[in-house]
């Protein structure tokens, strides 16, 4: 049986998004296209200017677009193009695309009004780009919390950064980036309330272990169901769902909020 949707990826996107691995894990749904023009789904890397590339792909007839690690930029024009053509645009983000994020988001939002503090640490290998780490970090946090107020860089350098903000209820937010090869890269997010909180640990998309989300309250601690699926595969599975149903993902809408936050930082 041939796959439902044919795929073409640019070389940069293929590498960054581990496209072959993700597509091969959904073999009934996706398979390689002979050429870019023949592909139902186009995969592009998220370097600056990626929105123009995505619009070109939509204009060329693509019904699905996967953007790997998109850089912050305005997505308004792309939203209009996608809406007009009915194309589904999904974003394959390093941590924010992890399938555990949906459950974590529900847990965080349920407690956000009672939040006392949100503390988060992202780690990446020594020598990594601090700005890129912060963008990935912020994408994961904003996905859980929604827009952050008073976002400000306290310090940044070759070993990482400290960024400060506030949640909507005024609770302090502290984001720290640490560049060290001591531990596997990942992000930990901890929201504390008066009587418990939520802790989220998100691994790299290619890590051989899943995310972990724990919700703590007066009755004890609940480990949310473990989802043994990478951020890459979860992105592709979501795309399949939208293509099958003809629905529009909310990725670009969410990304606009992230871009707004990041531009407030610069």
């Amino acid at each position: 049986m041939s796959p439902k949707y044919t795929v073409h990826a640019t070389p940069e996107a293929r590498e960054a998004g581990a496209v072959a691995l993700a597509v091969s894990s959904l073999p009934a749904s996706f398979g390689p296209a002979g050429s870019a023009s023949a592909a139902v789904v186009r995969v592009i890397a998220g370097q600056p200017g990626w929105t123009a590339g995505a619009i070109e792909a939509i204009d060329a007839g693509a019904r699905g677009i996967v953007v790997v690690n998109p850089a912050a930029e305005s997505v308004e024009e792309l939203r209009r193009a996608a809406e007009a053509s009915g194309a589904a645009v999904v974003l394959d983000q390093r941590w924010a695309a992890n399938p555990a994020v949906a459950g974590a988001e529900d847990a965080v939002r349920a407690m956000a009004g009672r939040a006392a503090v949100l503390d988060s640490v992202a780690t990446a290998a020594a020598g990594s780009d601090s700005g890129a780490l912060l963008a990935d970090h912020l994408a994961a946090v904003v996905r859980l919390t929604g827009r952050l107020e008073n976002l400000r860089v306290v310090t940044t350098g070759t070993h990482g950064y400290t960024v400060t903000a506030r949640l909507a209820n005024g609770a302090p937010v502290a984001l720290q980036g640490i560049l060290s090869g001591a531990r596997p890269a990942g992000v930990d997010i901890t929201l504390l309330t008066d009587d418990g909180g939520v802790s989220v640990a998100l691994p790299e998309p290619l890590a051989a272990w899943p995310a972990r989300v724990k919700v703590t309250g007066p009755q004890g601690e609940l480990l949310l169901p473990t989802l043994y699926e990478s951020a890459h595969r979860a992105t592709w599975r979501r795309l399949k769902g939208h293509l099958d149903a003809g629905t529009a993902p909310s990725d670009l809408h969410r990304f606009a909020a992230l871009t707004e936050s990041l531009s407030a930082l610069s």
């Binding site: 503390d119 350098g157 502290a174 309330t193 008066d194 009587d195 007066p218």
Partner: peptide, 13 residues
């Protein structure tokens, strides 16, 4: 770089 965090609340954990 040194970061100090503390929260005393009513959690059991």
């Amino acid at each position: 770089t040194i970061e100090l965090r503390a929260a005393m609340n009513n959690t059991w954990k």
